[in-house]
Each structure stands twice: as C-alpha cells, then as structure tokens.
C-alpha cells in the first residue's frame, strides 16, 4: 500500500517548464541559424552594380554633329539664269520675278560672286577635310572596338572550351588530332539548349564524347562583357590543344 501510494505520487510528477524548454530550444536554434546566415560571410561575390542584361550590342550613338552644309544653290544659280532665260521669256511670266533678281546683280557683282564662290569652295574643302578626319578617326575607333570585340570573343570561346574540355572523356582508341565542330544554342544564362554536330571529326566516339561534355558543362561560362554573348556559338574541339 505504501508502495502504491508512492507510485501514484511518482507518476503524478511532471517536469517543470515542458513548454518553456521547448520554446527555449526553438529560440536557440533560430538564433544559431541567424548567426549562420547573417554572421558568416558566404563567399562574397563582387557586387554586381548593374543587373541589366543586354542581348545585343547597344546601338552606336549617331554622330550628333551635323555639318552645316553651305548650300550649293549659289553655285548652281549663277549659270542658271543664262540658260533658263529664253525659256522663261517664252513661257509663263510668273517665274520671271524670281529669275530676274539674280540676273540684274550678276553683272555688277561678278567679281564679288567669284570671290563668294571661292570662299565657298574653300569652306567646303575645309569642311571636307574635317569630315574626312572624323571619318578616319571613327574608322580607327571602330577597328579598335572590333579588335577588342574579337579578342573578347576569342577569350569567351576559350573559356567555354576550357570548361567543356574538362568534361570530355577521351575515347581510348582515338588517334591523331581530328577536329569536331559544334553549333551550340544557349540561353542568356548559359544553359545549353541544344548542340548540333556541324563538322564531324571522323571519329564517332570523340564526337559523342564532346557532345556529352558540352551538355554536361551547362551552364556555360558567361562572357566578361554581356554584349559578347551570342545565342549560337560555333565551337571547334580538338583532342589536343596544340599540334
């Protein structure tokens, strides 16, 4: 009887703070998680300031400076009255008042007109020179940009090729150094949509190994500059990088 009394007494015992300890444990783990998330710097990338993705090259700014072209009419007008005069006389009178004014001052202002023409020529020539210079400069810039672009493109392709090469499992019986060309269609994220064999290396095992490697390399590395991205890439692979 004594034992049963003690037993019931024992069974009635409940630990104090069952719920409190549960809540405290939950709080503990939340705190730890917060420390992990906010306290530890998880492999910081350099901040990407601009998130815009340009799929195409931005349009080249049109040359704003429009050469104020000295109108050529004065050159044309001078001989005009002489030639046109008979016509005008025979024809309708309305054009007359227009034709007359040049004619009348033509003679007294012959020298002046010539001088004007010369000035005109001079001006045109200088403007031409300026224009040509600008043209040359622009061409030079375009060439530079082109070269940079080509360099960047080569860089980009070699980056992709390096990644793909890491995934190629060379078939053991491969001989020589045949090259296989693939057309790779990718998304802007670098995900490979499809690959197509453009030029076979002549060795089926190698072609398939490269194709598998391209698919496995998805997502492909991104170019340094977004404008270098192109949806379709033509990539050439050789078993050995250099002969």
């Amino acid at each position: 009887m004594n034992a049963t009394a003690a037993n019931t007494m024992f069974d009635e015992r409940i630990d104090p703070g069952r719920i409190t300890s549960f809540l405290l444990a939950a709080a503990m783990h939340l705190a730890l998680f917060a420390v992990l998330v906010f306290g530890v710097r998880w492999q910081n990338r350099p901040p990407e300031a601009v998130m815009v993705e340009l799929w195409n090259e931005p349009p080249v700014a049109a040359p704003v400076v429009v050469e104020p072209k000295p109108a050529p009419p004065p050159v044309a007008v001078r001989p005009d009255p002489v030639l046109v005069k008979p016509d005008i006389a025979e024809k309708a009178p309305p054009p007359k008042p227009r034709a007359e004014p040049p004619k009348a001052p033509a003679r007294p202002r012959d020298e002046e007109a010539q001088r004007q023409i010369r000035e005109q020529l001079q001006r045109e020539q200088t403007s031409f020179a300026v224009e040509r210079e600008q043209q040359l400069l622009k061409e030079q810039l375009a060439r530079d940009a082109d070269a940079a672009r080509r360099r960047g493109l080569l860089d980009y392709e070699s980056k992709i090729r390096t990644k793909v090469r890491g995934n190629i499992v060379l078939p053991p019986e491969l001989q020589g150094n045949p090259d296989a060309q693939f057309l790779v269609v990718q998304l802007p994220t670098g995900e490979v949509l499809s690959t197509k064999l453009v030029k076979s290396s002549g060795h089926r095992g190698y072609d398939e190994a490269v194709e598998r490697a391209i698919l496995k390399s998805s997502p492909l590395p991104k170019p340094d500059k977004v404008e270098l991205f192109s949806r379709e890439l033509r990539l050439t692979f050789r078993p050995k990088e250099k002969d």
Binding site: D15, F22, L24, A25, A26, M28
Partner: peptide
C-alpha cells in the same frame, strides 16, 4: 533540438 530541450528542462528541474 531534443538535446537542447532536455538541457533547458533538466536545468529547471
């Protein structure tokens, strides 16, 4: 989680 719960509970007990 369980061990932390028991830690707090035993502490109070």
């Amino acid at each position: 989680f369980l061990s932390w719960m028991f830690i707090f509970r035993k502490w109070m007990t």
